[in-house]
Amino acid sequence: MKVLSINGQSHQVDVPDDMPLLWVLRDVLGMTGTKFGCGIAQCGACTVHLAGQPVRSCLLPVSAIGARQVTTIEAVGQTPNGHKIQQAWLDKEVVQCGYCQSGQIMSATALLNQTPHPTDADIDAAMSGNICRCGTYVRIREAIHAAASV
């Protein structure tokens, strides 16, 4: 048994040490907001926060998490920057198919946590690990700037 601290709650899970957090979230805990896109940390759809840092949960073995806090899309809206980002996403109508947006929002929230007023270059650096096949990048950029100015 392992104990994981996710969104402020503690969860006991009986899973292999090398099992990536992504599948624990989705298949064991039923938290499907975090998405599977590539499995090799190329697309960012599975981004969660580990102790406040954005990480790709598809390659993060549960045994590496320890006591550190995990935050997912289901709870990021309860943080000030997470809420601002979600609201900006709504205001700018960023979303198309929406499948990558959980990861985009997690990366964008982490960016604002680190850099409250990011430049375009900051946005490129923080967000270029998140692929959107619908091509919502123009609005993602606008929404991050909008959230930062709230």
Binding site: T32, I73, W89, L90, E93, G98
Partner: peptide, 20 residues
């Protein structure tokens, strides 16, 4: 405003792959 956006920014939208 799109009617599907709110559920797509907070992880509650269900896609085929999310079915349990």
């Amino acid at each position: 405003k799109r009617i599907d956006t709110p559920s797509k920014v907070n992880g509650t939208a269900i896609y085929g792959i999310d079915i349990i």
